[in-house]
Design a protein around this nucleic acid. Sequence first.
DNA 1: CGACCCTTTGATTGCTGTCAATTATCGTGG
DNA 2: CCACGATAATTGACAGCAATCAAAGGGTCG
Lengths: 229, 229
Amino acid sequence: MSDCSTCIVRNRAICASLNAEELAILGKMGRRQRVKAGQTLLWEGDDAPVVANVLAGVLKLAVSTADGREQIVGIVFPSDFIGRPFGKESPYSVTAMTDADVCIFNRNSFDAFAGTHLDLQQKLLRRTLDELDRARHRMMLLGRKTASEKVASFLLEISERLSGYGCAPERHGRFELPFGRQQIADILGLTIETTCRQLTRMRSDGVLDLPSRREVVINDRAAMEAMAG
Amino acid sequence: MSDCSTCIVRNRAICASLNAEELAILGKMGRRQRVKAGQTLLWEGDDAPVVANVLAGVLKLAVSTADGREQIVGIVFPSDFIGRPFGKESPYSVTAMTDADVCIFNRNSFDAFAGTHLDLQQKLLRRTLDELDRARHRMMLLGRKTASEKVASFLLEISERLSGYGCAPERHGRFELPFGRQQIADILGLTIETTCRQLTRMRSDGVLDLPSRREVVINDRAAMEAMAG
DNA sequence: CGACCCTTTGATTGCTGTCAATTATCGTGG
DNA sequence: CCACGATAATTGACAGCAATCAAAGGGTCG
């Protein structure tokens, strides 16, 4: 059982739609769990007996081909929802990219609860619609953008999303990536080498700085927006 | 006002969740409209005052860059739902690829109605989740598959989806594409030339036949599945 | 029959992937 | 604290796939 009243995402997660009484019921169903970076919570194609809210950390949703190519199809931040309500198999794997805390529910119990709570379901619907918009936006990126456009678009989107969670001071011009180069490549449908070269070129063009492996400073946001296509 | 009792998608569209009384209310809100092939219903970035059900025909959801590149981010078949509930702007354009019939609702009225009808909202949620799965599946295709894998995957997916609507006799080995080569290219993130070459190669390999511009016959489904990656 | 559009085919370019080697960073243990 | 090994990132050379540019073929519709 979880103590929802002290939950750090209480007001941003789907639970925000619930009153104290409902929260108590849902709270009894949930349990908190810590996930280490690199650990996989759900496997692509496997039965997915759980859904969850993210309390802290960043996770990736990924699809793989038989020969090992990976495409990251979603990135999940604190207060986001994980899992596939009303569906048995998980169509993608869910893996922690940083150490993470999640609030896990049995899927069947959650489905039943959601089925009788209109507000919760509406929150879920809105989130799913937003996520669908993001997915479609990224389809354009994957299908029609060049390597430099991809990297520029990616940096802008990430700086936006990170700023929404209070992780980015300085008008989100500076931020820390929650993932390495290979994972950026897997998000953008590029190789690590191409990703790297684009970043290097942007740095030598003065558009950004790379103070450390995971830090990014956007010097010229306008230029980067132009580059994003 | 529409006569829902004679609606051809009555049992497959989201309306299937409604009883006679509810249907009468929603029916009063909706109006049928014919859309000619090529005509655009909603424009990317514009205010989208309507949502709709597709009664007949096939429509595309597309995103474009400033310099004219297009990526098709969704394909909509009869009984599918169009539009963005709970959101003002349409994040993509909606254009008919064949002559089509749609059942249109004012978005605000529909949102209000959906907000008080749990079953309808649940149907909408399920559909949105399915569409999100498809979108993510296609992100893998766009980001990580080769041209031949893309074309093979595409033909298999389309033959599946068409068979779901009674458009494909002969164990869906033969079917008619509801779109031309350029649109296939826009779905797959390829150029029309590359798309064309892949199809030609598959034909000369004997995997498929192309009796006419829009007809496809899959001769060797196993080979095509192997090719799809 | 002719104009137009869509499709197909061909030649060439170039972006990105692949393969390989070097450098930088981080964690670990002496 | 430093040395070391392991892992991640970067850079370079080269190849190949798909894009681009160009032209011809095939259907359709007036």
